[in-house]
Amino acid sequence: MAGNQYSRNKKNPGHEDAIVVENLSKRFRIPHERKITVYQHLAGLIAGSYSYEIFDALKDVSFSVKHGETFGVIGPNGSGKSTLLKILAGVLYPDRGTVQMNGKIAPFLELGVGFHPDLTAEENIYLYGAIMGLTKRMIASKYEEILDFAELKRFENMKLKNFSSGMAVRLAFSTAIQTNPDILLVDEVLAVGDESFQRKCSKKIDEIRREGKTILLVSHDLGMVQKLCERCILVKNGSIMSSGSPERVIEEYKRITGI
């Protein structure tokens, strides 16, 4: 569409960087009064003006992530981290700037997207797998592995609405991890299930990292960012305040927030 140079290039894994973001800007218009019906729109026409607040979620953000790198994004609430992640995932469209994703991406913005309570665990694995971009055949070949990892073999024919939330999230993580992406976009979802399952998840993430996959991690858990990431950026009010080694960036973050 006119005036937009947004591109998602998934067919170019040979490019030296996995993620290239250039001059990315996103502006939200937040109406004072949200009109969501025809009636309200018609009433608004008669009553007069349409007033809204402008909120610049991202202002001219540029950075790049190399293949095989684990890259952290930190920042206070409302700084634009989630907006950035959603644009990278292709959910939101930027107003200006370009995004290049060189490789197959798996967005972990939320686990269990599209899970249906009235379906069984088995049906949900196939549904969720398809949503995450797996073919039916691929899911079938990984099916046992998914159930084993989730430790839910006994419940394979139980409807999801009878699952505890911990069980559901375990099922989701185990399925999602099978997508075998080149680039992982992760938003604070690593803390799932009980402690032993969390350890298993961290191990799996570590394994993926060692396989040379690119991971972009958005987190408030500074300890985890320091432990996992090789590079890191600090986002505040929609701009990059600082970038570089996690130690330095976290130091900066602590300084500006006054912790």
């Binding site: 995932a89 959910v91 967005p107 913005l109 997207v113 599209g114 949503i131 995450m132």
Partner: peptide
Amino acid sequence: AKPSLVTKIFI
């Protein structure tokens, strides 16, 4: 009806 498929993942 399926907001999470719109806001949490790209299809």
